[in-house]
Simulated scan of single mutants.
Amino acid sequence: MRKVNLLNRCTRLFLFCIVMLTQLCGLTTFVYDLKRERIYQSNTLRAYSIFVLVVLTATVMSNVYYMIIQEADLSPLIGYYVILVVRVQNLVYSGECVQLLNEMLRLVGQLQTMAKHPNIFRGRHLLLLVLALHTLVRSLIAAIDRDTRQNIILLLIPAVLMAFLLQITINICLFVVLIACYQELHLCTRRISNDVAKVRRAQPLDGVHLSVLVEQLRGLTEELIMLRSKVFHISRRLIKHFRFHWLCAMVHGLIPFVFITAIEQRDLYFMTTSALNIVFYFTIFEMLSWESRLSRSFWHFHLTNYQPSFDRTIDVLIHQEISEHIKISVYEITLDMKFLFRVLSISIFFIFVNTQSYWHRHR
Results as ranks from 00 to 15, higher is better:
44 T>V: 14
107 L>Y: 13
131 L>M: 08
345 S>G: 10
30 F>K: 02
21 L>Y: 03
245 H>F: 09
184 E>N: 12
287 M>W: 03
247 L>I: 07
326 I>K: 01
235 S>Y: 06
5 N>H: 12
289 S>K: 06
176 V>N: 06
69 I>E: 14
293 R>E: 11
90 N>V: 04
112 Q>R: 15
262 A>Q: 05
45 L>C: 01
184 E>A: 10
66 Y>Q: 13
36 R>C: 02
27 L>F: 03
185 L>K: 03
148 T>H: 05
253 G>M: 11
188 C>H: 03
256 P>K: 03
46 R>V: 01
198 K>H: 08
81 Y>M: 11
41 Q>A: 10
314 I>Y: 07
266 R>F: 01
161 L>V: 02
88 V>G: 07
250 M>P: 00
69 I>A: 12
315 D>S: 10
90 N>L: 09
158 P>F: 02
163 A>Q: 09
59 T>I: 11
43 N>S: 10
139 S>C: 13
177 V>I: 15
252 H>S: 15
190 R>N: 13
237 R>L: 14
210 L>I: 03
111 L>Q: 02
26 G>A: 02
244 F>H: 02
131 L>V: 02
329 S>C: 09
309 S>N: 04
270 F>R: 09
235 S>I: 03
345 S>I: 00
331 Y>H: 06
21 L>T: 09
193 S>E: 08
42 S>I: 01
267 D>K: 05
23 Q>T: 06
3 K>W: 03
133 L>C: 09
24 L>D: 08
279 V>T: 13
18 I>G: 00
153 I>S: 15
181 C>Y: 01
157 I>Y: 04
200 R>K: 06
85 V>T: 12
335 L>R: 03
273 T>R: 12
156 L>C: 07
274 S>G: 02
354 N>T: 01
237 R>E: 13
150 Q>N: 11
215 E>C: 02
317 L>C: 07
99 Q>D: 09
137 V>N: 02
259 F>D: 04
149 R>F: 11
259 F>W: 05
337 M>E: 04
304 T>V: 14
114 M>R: 10
223 E>Q: 15
1 M>D: 12
284 I>V: 15
280 F>K: 04
174 L>S: 13
287 M>P: 00
76 P>S: 09
356 Q>K: 05
110 Q>F: 08
43 N>E: 06
350 F>N: 10
319 H>F: 09
151 N>H: 01
148 T>S: 12
242 F>M: 07
57 T>F: 11
207 G>K: 11
75 S>E: 07
2 R>Q: 12
79 G>S: 07
355 T>N: 12
289 S>N: 08
186 H>T: 07
295 S>N: 14
332 E>T: 06
267 D>E: 14
184 E>F: 00
337 M>L: 14
113 T>L: 08
282 F>C: 08
4 V>Y: 00
351 I>L: 12
152 I>R: 07
152 I>E: 04
190 R>T: 12
141 I>H: 07
247 L>E: 07
104 M>S: 11
286 E>V: 02
310 F>Y: 09
106 R>W: 05
156 L>G: 10
180 A>H: 05
312 R>E: 12
8 N>I: 05
164 F>K: 01
287 M>R: 11
335 L>M: 14
124 R>N: 13
